[in-house]
Amino acid sequence: MTADGVYVYAIIRAGRRLPPGARGVGSPERSLRALRRGRIAAVVSDAPSDLRARRRDLLAHQELLLLLSEQGAVLPMRFGMVAGDETAVHGQLATREAEYVGALEHLSGGVEFNIKALPAQDALAALVAEDKKVRRLRDELRRHPGYEASIRLGEAVAAGLRRRAAEAGQRALSELTPQARAVTFGPEVRGCVLNASFLVDRGASEDFRGVAERIARTSRDRMELRLSGPLPCYSFVPAEGAAVRAQGA
């Protein structure tokens, strides 16, 4: 039953048992199996024929990776990777075995934490008190209420909120970086002034969280800091495509 291909969730060390009860994407949820090749194995299921980035399937992907990463090192795949058949998966594992083993070692004992900083939206009073330009534009608007004046004021407020949040985000970054084995910046997310991922020792997770929570509390009038983790190390896996593309360029 692999007419629609093989959905690949992750690469793990060979010999690990799959978490009992864990299920894959699709409705009904596809059952999981490990395709072993040498020292590594791919966690796969049949791919549903109508696979899309649905909430349900995104969650299934995420939950399985969380379970797997709780038990040991994992190379998480990006959502939606589908191989033509099992032979293709075996071929890939055979070709890249050494590299994948190295990557698993590198990530061993590590988890990812992601922080996103957004402008605090209830920081208007603080902004007005601090920002001369905003005060000036507000006064202009009061004298001559109108559409253009409103736009100018609103623009200045939005910029001011972003600036304050970005400054706080940079301070958070410099405080959190020493707590991590590695840092990387995530894809740009609309509205975020900072999106960074940290590779943290699993044993240091609580400390990391504690520092982040303290920063969130102390700078809440500047930014809304959102912390996610511990997560599978999405942001610290080897980038296969990059080297190939670089060669081609």
């Binding site: 291909g5 690949v8 690469i11 980035a53 995104l58 992907h61 995420q62 190379l75 998480p76 795949m77 990006r78 959502f79 990777m81 589908v82 191989a83 033509g84 293709a88 890939q92 990812e112 992601n114 995530g186 894809p187 997310v189 999106n195 991922s197 997560l231 599978p232 999405y234 942001s235 896996v237 080897p238 980038a239 296969e240 495509g241 190939v244």
Partner: peptide
């Protein structure tokens, strides 16, 4: 965005 834009990609897969 981590699930969708991060994580490992294998070019020969779809």
């Amino acid at each position: 965005e981590l699930i969708l834009d991060r994580g490992m990609v294998i070019d020969v897969f779809v």
